[in-house]
Nucleic acid binder design. Structure first.
Length: 561
RNA sequence: CGGGGCGUAGCGCAGCCCGGUUAGCGCGUCUGGUUUGGGACCAGAAGGCCGGAGGUUCGAAUCCUCUCGCCCCGACCA
């Protein structure tokens, strides 16, 4: 492609709005332009890369038996109401204003299930893997980091349909392997974590993560290979040991102790003997949760335990109403009303505990969770922190921020049941289709690649996602007709041989051309200048290593073999 | 949605506190010329309702009120 005729608006200066390297370089190299917060236009050069990534995705999903669909972005809201996600999505879903009943699809489980319901009626029709690479719309409260978090973005989404969970396991595993191939082929350094399935529903899920300061997810990783999203991560901390001395409970005045730290400082109570009380309202019912000492309650885990996303910390009025005391003095003994009590695993069967007396300004000590009160359930509820031992072999956990590139879910039957997608099994019995859902953020692949493959000068593309294979850079076109003739011939020969060639035929000074070439970042620069052609040579520079080879003009084809 | 910052030429910015001629600078763009192995130089030129709406004032980019947009932190994140 002739660069003089191409629209590749490179920027010499840093755009003010871009904070992270990938965003800055995508703007500077002329890949994208922002139109509104979280909304971007892809310019020709950037779109070339996007198309290459999409083609690679198609190859790998086709290879596991995927069949590509093209699904509507406009969806009837009814179908989203049937699965309960119209409400669950809330403001995240765009609603069409001048055509009641239509929404912009933030994802496509509903539509896929709708088609499955229509036509997948027998176990003989399965397994199926259906996918699409399309624009999704999400009204993100805060778009950020360039294309990493937009309101409109490409997603490769595939969905598996199976007759049972064994089949789902196979479909899931196929995707797991395909995803590894995809990210490997894109030269992205990633790791896989166990994840929460959140409002998607389902049982197992894993995320493909790229470690980055710009990441929005937090992960716990350790040298043992343990890796989990902080939402589900656990550590191998020992529970509080039972004390041999187990006296009766005793009320004591704690007028100035509102927090666990106050108790520790004012009364010398060891942190692990404090049972911190936290009250949440879940679907309008109170739940009292006990955490060890200053352990942080993990709301993702709590959500799983409560089975709802509709919960919040209780307010003071509610605290007094249900427990008899305000925050700082709440505990398991002497509660004003009876309601559900749950506790973190680290407190299971613990004794010698200090907790609120449900009278403002008083606590009990010597509480034995087995003897003095009845805890309904124990669960892992705490948020892990750096340095804690990992569950695999106890090596220390590191906490890292990461960008979520892909997410694979075992959905199960949530959507098929909600929408009535049922089939007859070999015994003639009706069952809901067992589904999986597997997403990849297409723009995020590009952004993460650039985050990991750039230098001071610009992007450093690698195949197979580079926008071009080679960049021909003739120097001194005005001064020497010969340079132009040789460059023309190289351009023609390489194009004819199937190379994708960007040809900088512009009448610019060498500095401009070199800087643009490094910024755009095509893997090889073929530099045609008088210095070398008088000896029958050209120069080939590797963008990645910076190494330069002097190559005879007629040996260029061999060079790239 | 809370907190903070910013809207002045295509891009990056100054001017604003302390109101007062034709609103500046750098880059880019256009014309002519000189240059051509790492963003070169000279001369000339075009380009702005100072985000928008009200107000205060003899006079507003500048002061006040309200709005809209963008960025950052937090909340949120299928």
């Amino acid at each position: 492609m002739y660069q003089s005729k191409s629209f590749i608006p490179t920027l010499k200066e840093e755009p003010a709005e871009a904070q992270i390297p990938s965003h800055r370089l995508m703007l500077r190299a002329g890949l994208v332009r922002q139109v509104a917060a979280g909304v971007f236009s892809w310019l020709p050069l950037g779109f070339r890369v996007l198309k290459k990534i999409i083609n690679l995705l198609r190859e790998e999903i086709d290879a596991i038996g995927g069949q590509e669909f093209f699904l509507p972005a406009l969806n009837p809201v009814e179908i989203w109401e049937q699965t309960g996600r119209a409400e669950a999505m809330g403001d995240v879903m765009f609603h069409i204003k001048n055509r009641e009943g239509l929404v912009l699809a933030p994802t496509h489980e509903e539509i896929i299930t709708y088609h499955a319901r229509q036509h997948v009626k027998s176990y003989r029709d399965m397994p199926q893997i259906w996918y699409q690479v399309q624009t999704k719309f999400r009204n993100e409260p805060r778009p950020k980091s360039g294309v990493i978090r937009g309101r409109q973005f490409y997603m490769k989404d595939s969905y598996s349909l199976d007759e049972n969970f064994d089949g789902l396991d196979i479909s899931y595993q196929k995707h797991f392997e395909a995803y590894k191939r995809i990210f490997d082929r894109c030269h992205i350094k990633y790791f896989v974590v166990g994840a929460s399935s959140g409002a998607m529903g389902g049982r197992q899920s894993q995320e493909f993560m790229v470690e980055s300061e710009s990441g929005e997810d937090t992960c716990a990783v350790s040298d043992s290979g343990y890796a989990a999203n902080i939402e589900v991560a656990s550590s191998a901390l020992e529970p509080a040991k039972r004390l041999a001395d187990n006296p009766e409970i005793e009320k004591f005045a704690t007028p100035n102790a509102k927090t666990i730290n106050d108790l520790i400082e004012q009364f010398g109570i060891p942190e692990e003997r404090c049972a911190k009380s936290v009250v949440y309202m879940a679907d309008d019912s109170p739940v009292l949760i006990f955490m060890r000492g200053n352990d942080e309650l993990n709301e993702s885990k709590l959500s799983g335990v409560l089975g709802t996303n509709n919960f919040r910390p209780a307010e003071s009025i509610e605290l007094v109403k249900y427990t008899g005391a305000d925050h700082g003095s709440i505990g398991p003994i002497n509660l004003k009303t009876k309601f559900k009590l749950i506790a973190d695993n680290l407190l299971e069967n613990a004794n010698g505990l200090v907790s609120g007396a449900n009278i403002d300004g008083f606590h009990y000590k010597n509480i034995d969770f087995s003897r003095d009160c009845s805890i309904d359930e124990f669960h892992d509820l705490r948020t892990v922190h750096a340095g804690e031992p990992c569950p695999v072999n106890g090596s220390p956990i590191r906490v890292a921020k990461a960008i979520e590139l892909g997410h694979i879910f075992k959905l199960g039957t949530k959507y098929s049941e909600a929408l009535g997608a049922k089939f007859l099994d070999a015994n003639g019995k009706e069952n809901p289709i067992v589904m999986g859902s597997y997403g990849i953020g297409v723009e995020r692949i590009m952004a993460c690649f650039i985050e990991q493959n750039h230098d001071e000068s610009g992007v450093i593309w690698r195949q197979p996602i580079s926008p071009f294979d080679v960049h021909i850079i003739p120097l001194g076109l005005n001064k020497s007709a010969e340079v132009g003739e040789i460059a023309d011939k190289i351009y023609k020969d390489m194009s004819d041989s199937g190379f994708e060639v960007l040809y900088d035929d512009r009448n610019e000074s060498p500095g401009v051309k070199f800087n643009d070439a490094d910024l755009i970042g095509i893997p090889y620069q073929i530099i045609v200048g008088m210095k070398n052609i008088k000896n029958g040579n050209i120069e080939i520079k590797s963008r990645d290593s910076g190494e330069r080879d002097i190559v005879p003009i007629d040996a260029i084809a061999d060079y790239f073999k």
